[in-house]
Amino acid sequence: MNLSVLLGKELREQWRTYRLLGMALAFVAFAGLLSPIVAKVTPELLKNLPTGTGQTITIELPEPTAVDAIAQYLKNLTQTGIIVLILVAMGTVAQERERGTVVTVLSKPVSRLSFLMAKFIALTLTLAASLVLATLACWTYTVVLFGPFDAGVFVRASLLSALYLWVFLAVTFLCSTLTRGPIAAGGLSIGIYALVSLLGIVPRIKPYVPAALIEGATRLALGESADAGRAIATSLIAVLACLILAHWTFEKREL
């Protein structure tokens, strides 16, 4: 089975082209480390806000807690995290087509399914490694700044956010398979992200969109039930649908 050979190449590529390092550093810095700090200092910054007329407005905010740090962490993941993820994943198939390396590999005894699977698994592992590091960094910093916090809750909230990111990883992967170049794949992915975010505004659809996973994660941090079963189900179906569609279109594609 050539899947293991292809996966080995993909993982080495993630490492040697600094994609793994880039994603891990961005996740750790912008989500893992920055979130607890922002949660801690925001009330201080807002306390004496200058108006520009020489006076100051005093905004009194409640004392920040670990829950604020987690909420900030989840928010950063859904914004900066998504952008980093799209940048790393948008070229995965499209760039190989653009450069012609896809022909080099697929003229060998390699199935197109193995080719795609290796890429998606490698991207998933890169995302997982980055999230584990970011979660560890965030939890450590949260404990340092705010005191002890239940690690189990943190892990469950992170798993929900991981599923959220995995959905958009699958979407970007599909776009990379559909388009001829990484830029087009990235643009299409951002467009779909914006569309899905807009769909979340509709009350009847809201419990099913990936954003409901992040709301569920926030509820977990507050000690409530996640109530994200429907979003988990639709997200898993969305990932599967993206992979099936990616394979179907790639099998038919002339190279």
Partner: peptide, 19 residues
């Protein structure tokens, strides 16, 4: 795949992984 195991192919502009 059986056929491809028995052939060698060089494209007009062969592409490789530069890394």
């Amino acid at each position: 795949a059986e056929m491809r195991a028995r052939i060698g192919y060089l494209a007009e502009e062969p592409a490789f992984y530069g890394w």
